[in-house]
Amino acid sequence: MISFTVNGKPVTVEDPPSTPLLWVIRDSLNLTGTKYGCGMALCGACTVHIDGQAVRSCVAPVSRAEGKKVTTIEGISPDLTHPLQQAWIEIDVPQCGYCQSGQIMSAAVLLAENSTPSDEDIDEAMSGNICRCGTYPRIRRAIHRAAEISKQRGAK
């Protein structure tokens, strides 16, 4: 039995401790926003936060989450109001959309640590997330835009 919180809600799961967190989130907790793409931490589709840090849940054993706070895409805002969600919608970033949960989760860590990222910062923060549809130019624009939205909100 492993206990942690997901999006603020305490959960206890019975999966073996070595089970990747991804499959616990999806198959046991039925939160399907976190995606499977490679199983080897190569594509970033499965990115979640553990205590605010980005983690590729496809390779992180669920035991790593014990006693910690896990945040998935479903938990970053209750109502699409996260600056990244706003920017993603404004710029119409997604195409197929499958990788976008992971993209947003990675971008969220970037913005939490750097409120005004440069293009180089975005390269450094986002190159772990593959988008086969090729939305990279829009992701870049949207991260800059989200930084602006955050700044505007902060100024209010």
């Binding site: 926003g33 895409i73 699409l80 919608i89 499958y98």
Partner: peptide, 15 residues
């Protein structure tokens, strides 16, 4: 704006 964008930013889009 695409109709499917919001659902693709909060995990609700169903594949």
């Amino acid at each position: 704006h695409r109709l499917d964008t919001p659902s693709k930013t909060n995990g609700t889009a169903q594949f």
